[in-house]
Amino acid sequence: MKVVVAVKLKSGVLDPQGKAIGHALEGLGYDGVTDVRVGKLIELDIAETDREKARSAAESMAKRLLANTVVESFEISVP
């Protein structure tokens, strides 16, 4: 079963990569962009047929390895 984990920085945490992209976009003439935040998207293919078990496994993986829960939050979707 395919599971998607979207990881992003919590609000209030500085995002230097997002700032750099924002400045680059401004330099390219995109003046309407006021804030850029960078995250990561992780797609997992889990050998599970039960949606809730797959979601639970992905949540455990995210808490233990995929996200630094001190500064990052995550969302799990099972399309």
Score class of each variant (00 low, 15 high):
Lys2Tyr: 06
Lys2Asn: 13
Lys2Gly: 03
Lys2Thr: 06
Val3Asn: 12
Val4Gly: 11
Val5Trp: 14
Val7Asp: 13
Val7Glu: 12
Lys8His: 09
Leu9Pro: 06
Leu9Lys: 15
Lys10Phe: 10
Lys10Thr: 13
Gly12Pro: 04
Val13Thr: 03
Val13Ser: 02
Leu14Met: 13
Asp15Cys: 07
Lys19Asp: 13
Ala20Lys: 12
Ile21Gln: 09
Gly22Glu: 15
His23Arg: 14
Ala24Gln: 03
Leu25Lys: 02
Glu26Lys: 15
Leu28Trp: 03
Gly29Trp: 10
Tyr30Asp: 00
Tyr30Val: 03
Tyr30Gln: 05
Gly32Tyr: 01
Gly32Arg: 02
Thr34Phe: 00
Thr34Arg: 05
Thr34Lys: 02
Asp35Gln: 10
Asp35Thr: 04
Val36Pro: 00
Arg37Phe: 01
Arg37Ser: 08
Arg37Lys: 07
Val38His: 01
Gly39Ser: 10
Lys40Glu: 11
Leu41Asp: 08
Leu41Met: 12
Glu43Lys: 12
Leu44Glu: 00
Leu44Arg: 03
Leu44His: 01
Leu44Phe: 04
Leu44Ala: 02
Asp45Gln: 09
Asp45Trp: 04
Asp45Phe: 06
Asp45Asn: 13
Ile46Trp: 08
Ile46Arg: 07
Ile46Val: 13
Ala47Gln: 05
Glu48Tyr: 06
Glu48Asp: 10
Glu48His: 08
Thr49Arg: 14
Asp50His: 09
Glu52Arg: 11
Ala54Phe: 07
Ala57Asp: 08
Ala57Phe: 08
Ala58Thr: 08
Glu59Gln: 07
Glu59Leu: 02
Glu59Gly: 08
Ala62Ile: 02
Ala62His: 02
Leu65Ser: 05
Ala67Trp: 10
Thr69Met: 11
Val70Arg: 11
Val70Lys: 13
Val71Thr: 12
Glu72Phe: 10
Ser73Arg: 14
Ser73Lys: 12
Ser73Asn: 15
Phe74Trp: 01
Phe74Ala: 05
Glu75Arg: 14
Ile76Lys: 04
Ile76Leu: 05
Pro79Gly: 15
Pro79Ile: 13
